[in-house]
Measured scan of single mutants.
Amino acid sequence: KYLVLALYDYQEKSPREVTMKKGDILTLLNSTNKDWWKVEVNGRQGFVPAAYVKYL
C-alpha cells in the first residue's frame, strides 16, 4: 500500500468521493484512473482528484 499527501482541501461532491484536508495522509487504494484516485481517509473509502494528492 502507498501513502499519499493531500496538497489541498477537497470537499466531496458525490457519495463516491471523500473529503480531505490539506496535509492529510491518505492510504492509496487504486490509481489506475489518471484523474481520480481511490483512497481511504478517516475510515472512509472514496475518490479524490489525482492532482490534489502526491506520493509520500
Results as ranks from 00 to 15, higher is better:
K1S: 12
K1F: 11
K1M: 13
Y2D: 13
Y2E: 14
Y2H: 15
Y2C: 12
Y2V: 15
L3K: 12
L5A: 06
A6Q: 01
A6V: 10
A6C: 09
L7F: 04
L7E: 04
L7K: 07
Y8I: 11
Y8R: 15
Y8D: 09
Y8F: 14
D9A: 07
D9L: 02
Y10M: 01
Y10R: 02
Q11D: 13
Q11R: 10
Q11C: 10
Q11I: 14
Q11Y: 15
E12F: 06
K13C: 09
K13N: 11
K13L: 09
K13W: 03
S14Y: 07
S14R: 09
P15Y: 08
P15S: 12
R16A: 13
R16W: 15
E17F: 06
E17V: 05
V18E: 01
V18H: 03
V18R: 01
V18N: 04
V18M: 11
T19A: 07
T19G: 10
T19D: 05
T19F: 04
T19R: 05
M20D: 00
M20K: 00
K21C: 08
K21M: 11
K21A: 11
K22S: 08
K22W: 03
K22T: 08
G23S: 04
G23I: 01
G23L: 02
G23C: 06
G23F: 04
G23R: 02
D24S: 07
I25S: 03
I25H: 06
L26M: 14
L26N: 00
T27K: 13
T27Q: 11
T27C: 09
T27N: 11
L28R: 01
L28N: 00
L28V: 10
L28T: 02
L28Y: 02
L29M: 08
L29W: 06
L29D: 01
L29A: 04
L29S: 03
L29C: 06
N30K: 07
N30T: 08
N30E: 14
T32E: 14
N33G: 10
N33W: 07
K34S: 13
K34L: 10
D35F: 12
D35G: 10
D35M: 12
D35I: 15
W36A: 02
K38F: 15
V39L: 04
V39Y: 00
E40L: 09
E40H: 05
E40W: 07
E40S: 10
V41Q: 11
N42C: 08
G43M: 06
G43C: 08
R44L: 08
R44V: 10
R44Q: 09
R44W: 04
R44Y: 06
R44C: 05
Q45P: 07
G46S: 02
G46H: 02
G46C: 02
F47P: 00
F47D: 04
F47T: 03
V48W: 01
V48R: 00
V48C: 04
V48M: 01
P49G: 01
P49W: 03
A50M: 05
A50N: 03
A50Q: 06
A51S: 14
A51K: 15
A51W: 07
Y52S: 14
Y52A: 12
Y52H: 07
V53M: 05
V53S: 00
V53H: 00
V53A: 03
K54M: 15
K54L: 13
K54E: 15
Y55E: 13
Y55C: 11
Y55L: 15
L56Y: 14
L56F: 12
L56M: 14
L56W: 12
